[in-house]
């Protein structure tokens, strides 16, 4: 499929969904399922009042910070565990434990121990994401090409050159994979964190709308959020991915 074909396919698919939604809403005639136009109206209104941009901005800021923290810390730990079997034997059980602690438990504990503040919110998201990054990067480090490491050693690349030109390009696909799944995970978790203990952000807003059974607003905010995350994927992650693959045949 060419990109144009793909794009027109996506357009038809979106129109179909909107059509079905509209018909469903018309036949139900219930506030539980507002028609697409009502949702669009709410969307425009809340963008105009600045409410939606504010809460979306707050959530995105949290997302950025926690994503950056989780990725950098997770990558460092992953490389360390992948490179040192002894270290890995020691900490692997911790990792298994962290991977299996439900996200909600980490959130509650963070709020209990650190108080209902920004630090607790970010920490909760980061702790939920880190084990994931660690596992991916550990796998990446284990699969580093020994031949190329020997090459770097024989030609005395030194630490910095070896990392930049030999190790990093091999880890890059793993970092991209961790980023992709990381973004998907974090933006789902972050709403719950906000719902539980913050007084702003998308999660907090959605919680308010839920209490008022304001389905139109819920859908409007969700739509805005999905749009932003998709834009990040399209404008940031895809080009980075392509750039990393340009040397492939």
């Amino acid at each position: 499929m060419t990109p144009t074909q793909w794009n027109s396919g996506a357009a038809v698919s979106a129109l179909l969904l909107l059509g079905l939604w509209h018909m469903g809403a018309l036949s139900l005639q219930s506030p539980m399922l507002p028609p697409p136009l009502d949702v669009a109206e709410v969307l425009v209104r809340d963008i105009r009042t600045g409410q939606l941009p504010y809460h979306l901005g707050v959530t995105l800021a949290r997302l950025t910070v926690s994503f950056a923290l989780a990725m950098s810390v997770g990558t460092a730990i992953g490389i360390a565990l992948g490179g040192h079997p002894g270290l890995n034997r020691l900490f692997d059980p911790w990792l298994v434990l962290l991977l299996n602690v439900p996200a909600l438990v980490t959130m509650i504990l963070c709020y209990v121990w650190l108080g209902l503040g920004e630090t607790a919110a970010i920490t909760a998201v980061v702790i939920n994401k880190i084990p994931n990054v660690v596992v991916t990067l550990r796998e990446g480090t284990r699969s580093l090409d020994r031949d190329l490491m020997e090459l770097a050693q024989a030609y005395r690349f030194g630490w910095i050159k070896t990392f930049r030109h030999v190790i990093w390009p091999q880890l890059y696909p793993f970092i991209m994979a961790a980023s992709r799944t990381g973004l998907a995970l974090i933006w789902k978790i972050i709403l719950v964190v906000e719902l539980l203990g913050r007084s702003n952000g998308m999660g907090y807003q959605l919680h308010l709308f839920f209490q008022m059974f304001d389905v139109a607003s819920i859908l409007a905010y969700t739509f805005a959020f999905v749009l932003v995350v998709q834009t990040i994927e399209l404008l940031l992650l895809r080009p980075l991915d392509r750039r990393a693959k340009r040397w492939r045949r």
Partner: peptide, 22 residues
């Protein structure tokens, strides 16, 4: 020391020229 291995061992993500200059 220059080392020519049994397999070429070029860094696939660097160009020929970069491989040499690195």
């Amino acid at each position: 020391i220059g080392y020519v291995f049994q397999n070429p061992r070029l860094l696939p993500w660097r160009t020929v020229r970069q491989n040499i200059e690195l």
